[in-house]
Amino acid sequence: MMSVIAISALIALAAGVYVATPVARDGARVAGLVIAGLIALGAFGAYLVNGEPDLSGQPYDVLIERLRSTEPTQLTPIEQEERLRDAIRNNPEDIRALTLLGRFLARTDRELEAIGLLQRALRQGEDARIYSDLGEALVNLNEGQVTAEARRAFRRAYELDPNIPEPSFFLGSAAYAEGDRAMAATYWTDIINRLPTDDPYRAAIADRAADLLSRPTGGPGADGEAPFANAEPGDIEAMISAMVDRLEMRLDDDPGDLSGWLTLARARMMMEKPAEAREALETARSRFEGQPGKLALISALESAFAFEETDA
């Protein structure tokens, strides 16, 4: 603070004296003194209206020195972010900083920049985890859509390490979105098989997969019309039962269709026939004996139904 005041005072005096000199030289000493004094004091007064002489500056060099010398856990998220950026500035190939920052940005809705950083990290060396993060950022950027680019990232991640849950989940989702339920079921049940039973992802994937795979398929037949479109309420019942009949026939031919069994159970639940729904699940369960991934899906759907009888 004192240095600001002292320097300002010196400048003010010098300026005042410089302006007043011609007047003082002309013989009007007092007038000169008044002019110099007014300028100096006036400048000071005008400064102090809003001035904050005791507020020190914060050049970036000083700031970053402080961030570097502080324990990362003591920093706020935004300070950590800056520290990571600083690390990358100093070493643009710092994979750890690139990934950490990329992940942080992806989680704070800055996918575009996150994607750039993760791609940079991958250029240093391939890594399943980073590919998976990249894929996820791409999916978030495209509002949940697994684009071709995201799929490439997940596929590479899957090739490098099939035990990470996200690539399998999203690859399954992409297959599902294209209507390939068998492929989707394969991705999902495989990863559930591989994950330890206490992994939180296991239950999450099973729930989601059971929900998706048990939905009625796009159209009732070859005509491709959406189910229940333009139908009277009374007709819906009829259509559901027609669909159930078709499903039953299909499952007789091809009892290995997991999605078919799940859909059948769900449709029966909608027709308020819980006993038959359970029966379908039990049949499927015995059919898929020894395949824990598929069984997990069946259990997930079962618990989603929360059978009324068990409540009673």
Binding site: T76, P77, I78, L105, T108, D109, R110
Partner: peptide
């Protein structure tokens, strides 16, 4: 933004 930890 800083408070939310987001830059959008």
């Amino acid at each position: 933004d800083a408070a939310e930890g987001a830059g959008s």
